[in-house]
């Protein structure tokens, strides 16, 4: 009985499972990274302008 005859199909199924899950995971991670960078940049910019303004008012 050649029960191992369909190994290529089995391999394909698991390969596709991992590709889909990791593909989706990296897609999410990249998006989180992109948006977070933008948020951080904006917040830093905001903080600098506030500091600058405070300096102006105190001096």
């Amino acid at each position: 009985m050649d029960t191992l005859q369909n190994l290529d199909y089995l391999f394909a199924a698991y390969a596709i499972l991992w590709v889909i899950i990791f593909g989706y995971f990296f897609y999410l991670t990249r998006q989180i990274g992109d948006v977070r960078r933008e948020v951080d940049a904006l917040q830093r910019e905001r903080a600098e302008t506030t500091v600058a303004r405070n300096d102006e008012t105190t001096s």
Partner: peptide, 24 residues
């Protein structure tokens, strides 16, 4: 899960190795 599927569970006699797709 990979270990359980490929090592722990027995080979299904009728369908052979491809039956292991069933778990995922």
């Amino acid at each position: 899960a990979l270990w359980l599927i490929f090592v722990y569970t027995p080979l299904e006699l009728v369908q052979g190795a491809v039956q292991k797709v069933f778990y995922i």
